[in-house]
């Protein structure tokens, strides 16, 4: 075996133990050093992959089988997936049929189509730290003027189509409310929509646009009010939507 072949095998299967492989290692100091580095990397890799399963995982899996019960989250997930298929499909179709998409039309479509990729986020129940929410906005160069709402369970600085956004989920009355704040793109006007089972509202806010979406339209006004207050400051929390 030559050095090239040894390195090829080492990179693909660092754990191999066959005679020809080990013989080259023991005969060639440079490859022996590479072998040691490779073993260290494998240990590091194995450690990094060793995520801790959620507590009582086996018990919950057995319970699910015994009762035929799904995790509560599953409902949201499937709901998200079903909507996803129709929202994504409708959007793609619209584009190919040459539908004339104005500004807010494409923003709605993109926002609704963005939900399924993170369907899991709709089921998160645990409020996250204010600092994490602030960081999500800071990643987009935005400093919040006042505290965010206390019931945010998810934040991520997502790209949505061509837009830079902050994607948030809140839990209100047992339902997820998604807010996507589009940075640096201010929609011309307020707008409401219903698409793929989601009610939504599009609101110009600061130098950007806030899109709020929920299965129940009554949840939208409160979400917009809370985020207007947080982004614009306490003075701006007047009635809206």
């Amino acid at each position: 075996m030559d050095c090239l072949e040894f390195r090829r095998q080492l990179g693909a299967e660092p754990g191999r133990r066959d005679a020809a492989f080990l013989a080259h290692r023991d005969a060639c100091p440079a490859c022996a050093a590479a072998w040691t580095r490779a073993q260290q990397f494998e240990r590091r890799l194995a450690d990094a992959l060793a995520v801790t399963p959620p507590p009582r995982l086996a018990e919950r899996m057995l319970l699910a089988q015994a009762t035929g019960e799904r995790l509560a989250r599953r409902k949201y997930l499937q709901r998200g997936l079903a909507l996803a298929a129709s929202a994504g499909g409708a959007f793609v179709l619209g584009r190919f049929l040459g539908t004339r998409d104005d500004d807010s039309e494409s923003l709605r479509a993109l926002a609704v189509a963005h939900l399924p990729g993170e369907a899991f986020a709709l089921g998160l129940k645990q409020p996250i730290a204010v600092s994490a929410i602030e960081q999500g906005f800071l990643n987009r160069g935005i400093r919040l003027a006042a505290s965010p709402p206390p019931d945010v369970t998810y934040v991520h600085d997502c790209p949505v189509g061509p837009y830079r956004t902050v994607h948030l989920v809140m839990q209100r009355g047992g339902l997820p409310v998604t807010v996507i704040y589009v940075v640096g793109h201010r929609n011309r006007a307020h707008d409401r929509f219903e698409r793929a089972g989601w009610h939504g509202t599009v609101v110009p806010l600061r130098a950007g646009t806030l899109v709020a979406m929920a299965a129940n339209p009554e949840l939208l006004a409160g979400a917009v009010r809370d985020w207007r207050r947080s982004l614009d400051g306490p003075a701006a929390g007047g009635p809206l939507a």
């Binding site: 995790l71 599953r74 997930l77």
Partner: peptide, 13 residues
């Protein structure tokens, strides 16, 4: 994490 748990449950069912 949440999706992973779902996948495990679906797999075991």
């Amino acid at each position: 994490a949440a999706l992973a748990e779902d996948l495990v449950q679906e797999t075991l069912l």
